[in-house]
């Protein structure tokens, strides 16, 4: 028989090892809320379920999937999307006038609201003759399936999606709403664990990694921030959550990310001194920092 605190410690250690994400003490309720439905489905108590996932790899994968799901809404926090439309996009349209192409990465896409929110803005504001690609990546296969399907429940649709965009870009399918095919075509899916190397993704003009870093341990967080540097095209933008910062990083890494304020939103860009040099060696030189 396992006690509740032992069960929590076991899940916490397992999640850290498998995904790099941390669930500190005090997050017991969150772990329980996310695993209880799976335990009920498996027909056992929470404590017995924990014993089960330690032994059963398939059940473990399901549990990790449930624990790495990030709650999300449309145009989350609003201000970053306003800043994108008002400042970042016009700036990028100037900077990329030669290629007329934008690439955007929603690096922890969850169920896809972030990727599709950006898709709606590009659909409205990208001038004719331009092309774009939005890469949505996530660790969870369940979440990638959801982005692929582009279907959302009534309750999810209510979260932050302006009604004018609901009627413009979605249609009702049974009890759910489905995103317009032309928006779905703008989004490419990739399975990506943020703790694993970023290979074959190409580089981006905007990377969104919002409200995800908080779930990782400091070292992992810094490693991700380091590996994000060469993923950004010159003049590109990097967006993290409003409560997240690059300032607690080692000095070389903190200096590599330059902070800029757009209204209420802080954006990050690769510091000019670094941007002048070729990208690959920088990542290497910072790895040991």
């Amino acid at each position: 028989m396992v006690s509740a605190s032992e069960a929590f410690a076991a899940v916490s250690a397992l999640t850290r090892r498998e995904t790099g994400m941390i669930y500190d003490e005090g997050k017991e309720y969150l772990v329980e809320a996310r695993l209880q439905p799976l335990a009920t489905k498996a027909g056992c108590s929470f404590a017995d379920y924990v014993t089960k996932i330690l032994a059963d790899p398939i059940e473990r994968a399901k549990a990790m999937d449930a624990l790495t799901i990030n709650e999300t809404s449309w145009f989350r926090d609003n201000a970053p999307y306003q800043a994108f439309t008002d400042v970042m996009l016009p700036d990028l349209l100037q900077a990329r006038a030669a290629t007329r192409r934008l690439r955007i990465w929603s690096a922890a896409s969850s169920s896809g609201q972030e990727a599709y929110s950006i898709a709606m803005l590009l659909d409205q504001h990208l001038p004719p003759g331009w092309t774009s690609e939005i890469v949505a990546s996530d660790y969870s296969p369940t979440m990638l399936d959801r982005v692929r399907a582009g279907r959302y429940s009534q309750v999810e649709m209510n979260r932050g999606l302006p009604a004018t965009l609901l009627v413009k870009y979605f249609s009702r399918v049974g009890s759910e709403w489905e995103v317009a095919p032309h928006l779905r075509d703008m989004v490419t899916l990739r399975s990506q664990n943020l703790t694993a190397p970023f290979t074959g993704l190409g580089t981006f003009d905007l990377i969104l990694l919002r409200n995800v870093l908080i779930y990782f341990e400091k070292d992992v967080r810094h490693d991700i921030l380091r590996r994000m540097l060469p993923m950004l095209n010159p003049g590109g933008y990097f967006l993290i959550g409003s409560s997240e910062t690059t300032l607690d990083s080692p000095p070389a890494l903190a200096a590599a990310w330059q902070r800029e304020q757009i209204g209420r939103v802080q954006v990050h860009r690769v510091a000019p001194a670094l941007a002048d040099r070729p990208t690959a060696p920088i990542a290497a030189s910072l790895t040991g920092a």
Partner: peptide
């Protein structure tokens, strides 16, 4: 009907059922 309400002058539209967050999100919006 949603289109009709917006055309008549509604600024926003929340469909029941909703979570408390949905109301908060829309007011923020």
């Amino acid at each position: 009907q949603i289109v009709r309400a917006l055309a008549a002058g509604a600024h926003e539209y929340v469909i029941k059922p909703f979570t408390p967050d949905a109301i908060a999100d829309k007011l923020e919006l």
